[in-house]
Amino acid sequence: MPELTARAAPPLAHHFVDMRQQTEAARLGMWLFLASEVLLFTGLFTAYSIYRYLYAGVFEEASRKGVELWAGTTNTFVLITSSLTVALAIHFARLGRGKLAAALLGVSLLLGCAFLGIKAIEYANHFHEGQLPGKFYTFAEVQGPGASMFFTLYFIMTGLHGLHVIAGMTVLAVMAVRAWREEFGPEHYAPIEIAGLYWHLVDLIWIFLYPLLYLI
């Protein structure tokens, strides 16, 4: 039985002493990577706060007239739900129920697609209305210095986040395949756990973007 052998001999790389060390290393590595990812966005958040401070009124107006609250809110729910299904998938992978875990990851992937779809509709609207960054800005309803800046930051922040969603979905897809093949079990679930951490980060970043761009 392939599942059994896979489970019985979780791969230990030659340079580690034991499995515990390997898992610990992987987990710490992921946390550090997440920290550096957060700092990647920190630069943008700083820029956002400064410009928001400088152009408080215009930013508020742009946020009110320029972006669709329903889209942002729906997307927030979509992402939170997908985080939940990922967490469940990890849980079941740990119990050795690979097929169920894979199915749950599949749901998360669908939710990821839904997120991207809604984002695409929003982007199309922005193009249509001329709510574009910098010199492409032609949206007449909100004018004044800082109006195009809102959309510059909007596109860079959501764009970068979108790339992270795509990267996260790729990782989840790989994990789904591996879970389907019953590669994970009670001793060996670090990869899927780590992939899950990444997806939660993607979710978390959105939780910050959503109020900044849609609410306040």
């Binding site: 001329g130 010199k135 032609t138 007449a140 004018q143």
Partner: peptide
């Protein structure tokens, strides 16, 4: 007058 130029004049 294209919109960006309108913005410039308003400015």
């Amino acid at each position: 007058i294209p919109a960006p130029e309108v913005a410039a004049i308003v400015e």
